[in-house]
């Protein structure tokens, strides 16, 4: 074998092994993160975490019951606003596109909105609700999260509706269904698995957001007093506890981190593996 060929073969083996190494590094990051959270979070998690209010700075004990309820409240309101809007906009994009170019511009702007940093979305909700109402509120946090949810849900709904074969539409029309009946009873049910997957992934994503809540829902050491008052949430609690100087707050932050990651990963795995079996999930 001549030297040149040998060299090429060596380069081939080395570079191909390096790409494998890159993948190993990337995937192991996930296991490092999960391992650390399970170890530190698992040690820190106790029953009080789910039932008690946070203790004042420096004192030990307490939990984050208010933040768990607050997060659920904020995310549920965001989903209530964002999911229907996103879904219906997606139906428009997939089924009602005409030649005016309006759909194309909605699609473009939705992608643009999806790429805007969450902290900037927080500024929008602050300007719309916090500044005029002169106070932080759970509602303003929900609006911020809903704005993040809408573009994701609309684009995924569109994509899954487009994957529904045209023969189904033709069948419905041939049986005499009007267009909206065809969409409501044939097209949407056919794409429902994928659409639901997209919705779950979207909600899981906003549930972990802290940045847009910092100056909208803000934080609260006590139980929430309704949707027009400052409300605690798990991601913001993790942030404030992690950067605090108190040992016991760090413990609480790990526990909260574990709870949050389990919720996010569980919904992701459930959505991708169980619900979306055989459906290709597009990227958010």
């Amino acid at each position: 074998m001549n030297k040149r060929l040998l060299w090429r073969k060596i380069v081939n083996k080395v570079m191909l092994s390096l790409t494998g190494l890159c993948t190993l590094v990337a995937v192991s990051a996930l296991f490092f993160i999960l391992g650390y959270l399970l170890y530190y979070g698992g040690r820190s998690l106790d029953w009080n975490f789910f039932t008690q209010l946070p203790k004042p700075p420096g004192e030990t004990g307490g939990g984050m019951a208010n933040a768990i309820v607050g997060s659920a409240e904020i995310v549920a309101m965001a989903a209530l606003i964002g999911l229907p809007v996103g879904f219906l906009a997606g139906v428009y994009l997939a089924e009602f596109e005409d030649r005016t170019g309006f759909a194309a511009s909605v699609r473009y702007v939705a992608d643009l909105l999806n790429g805007i940093p969450s902290i900037v979305i927080g500024l929008l909700a602050w300007g719309l609700l916090v500044a005029p109402m002169k106070g932080f509120s759970a509602l303003s946090g929900s609006i911020a999260l809903a704005v993040m949810l809408i573009p994701v849900v609309s684009r995924q709904t569109e994509q899954f509706l487009r994957e529904v074969p045209n023969s189904l539409r033709e069948g419905a029309l041939a049986l005499g269904a009007s267009k909206w009946k065809m969409i409501a009873t044939v097209v949407v049910p056919a794409g429902s698995k994928g659409i639901l997957t997209g919705m779950i992934l979207g909600v899981a994503r906003i549930a972990g957001e802290a940045a847009p809540l910092l100056f909208t829902a803000f934080n609260n050491q006590f139980w929430g007093q309704g949707i027009t008052q400052p409300t605690a949430s798990l991601p913001v609690m993790i942030y404030t506890h992690a950067i605090s100087p108190f040992e016991d707050w760090h413990r609480q932050a790990w526990a909260a981190g574990l709870v949050l990651i389990l919720m996010v990963l569980f919904s992701n795995i459930a959505a991708r593996l169980v619900l979306a079996r055989g459906v290709s999930v597009p990227r958010a």
Binding site: P235, I238, G257, L260, V264, N268
Partner: peptide, 30 residues
């Protein structure tokens, strides 16, 4: 990578993208 392995690894990597930013921060601090 064979298709099965590639899809499995891609799935894990997409989970990495689903981890909230504040959790990355928590781990980074400690």
């Amino acid at each position: 990578a064979p298709a099965g392995l590639s899809n499995a690894l891609t799935f894990l990597i997409e989970l990495l993208a689903a981890i909230p930013s504040v959790i990355y921060g928590l781990l980074a601090i400690f």
